[in-house]
Simulated scan of single mutants.
Amino acid sequence: MSHGAYAVGLLEDVEQNDEVLDYMRRIQATLDPYGGRFLVHGATPEVLETPWPGILVLIGFPDEAAALAWYRSPAYQAILPLRTRNSKGVVFVVRACGDDHSSTALADAIASAR
């Protein structure tokens, strides 16, 4: 499945209590209508630069609009406090690069715009 956007959670100090377990049991139903699928869920990354003591959650969506619609949906907003009361971290949505992305072309575009 090709994804056009990602919801990323960099979470720390997650308390594995009943509220978090309830959140985990209910989140998939909030993702399904928006085509969201877990790509990484609760993995501890092998940190190579700058220490970071947390877990990673990566959810793929067909596009940025679907990712934002999921996050703002009443169904997700209803369960969101179950996570935010029991963890710290940052959550964001980001568009994926297209198959034709080139870091060289991006660098050249930035350089020419300066």
Rank of each mutant, 00 (worst) to 15 (best):
F61W: 11
D100H: 06
F61R: 03
E49H: 14
P81R: 01
E19H: 11
D18E: 15
L68D: 15
S73P: 10
D100R: 07
Y23D: 03
S112L: 02
Y34V: 04
G89Y: 07
G42S: 11
N86V: 01
A29R: 13
G98T: 12
E64L: 15
T84Y: 03
R25V: 01
L11D: 15
T30I: 02
E46W: 01
E49K: 04
K88V: 06
P81N: 09
E19A: 15
A107H: 12
I110M: 15
G98Y: 03
E19R: 07
D100P: 05
N86P: 10
V20G: 09
S73L: 09
Q16P: 10
L82V: 07
V20T: 14
D100Q: 11
V91E: 14
R83K: 12
F92S: 08
W52V: 00
S102N: 02
V94E: 13
T30F: 04
G36N: 04
A78R: 08
A96P: 11
L58D: 04
V90W: 11
A29K: 08
L82K: 10
L48G: 11
L106N: 05
P33V: 01
L56F: 00
G9N: 13
P62A: 02
G9Q: 09
G9K: 01
G35V: 08
T104V: 15
D18C: 01
F61N: 06
F38P: 08
Y76A: 02
Y23Q: 00
D100W: 12
L68Q: 14
L39K: 01
Y6M: 09
M1Q: 08
E12F: 01
P51Q: 09
R72D: 15
F38E: 03
L58I: 14
E49Y: 06
H41L: 13
A69W: 02
I79G: 06
Y71K: 10
V20R: 11
F92I: 07
H41Y: 11
S73C: 07
R26D: 15
A7Q: 14
S102G: 09
F61L: 06
H41S: 11
G89V: 07
W70H: 13
A107Q: 15
V47K: 03
R114G: 07
L48A: 09
I79V: 13
V47R: 03
A111D: 07
E49L: 15
V91C: 14
L80R: 14
A78G: 03
N86M: 06
L58H: 00
G4Y: 08
E15I: 12
A109H: 06
E15C: 05
S73Y: 14
L11N: 07
T30M: 05
P81E: 05
C97L: 10
I27Y: 07
I27S: 06
Y76C: 06
D18L: 07
A65L: 10
H3S: 11
T50V: 11
G89K: 02
S103G: 13
G98Q: 06
V8L: 15
T50A: 12
V93Y: 04
G60S: 06
W70V: 05
V94Y: 01
G4R: 04
A96L: 11
T44C: 01
A7T: 13
G36Y: 08
Y76N: 13
S103V: 12
R83C: 05
E64K: 10
L82N: 08
T44I: 08
S102A: 05
P81W: 03
D63S: 05
H101S: 04
E46P: 04
D22W: 04
Q28E: 14
G42T: 14
T30V: 04
P53V: 00
W70K: 04
V8F: 02
V40Y: 12
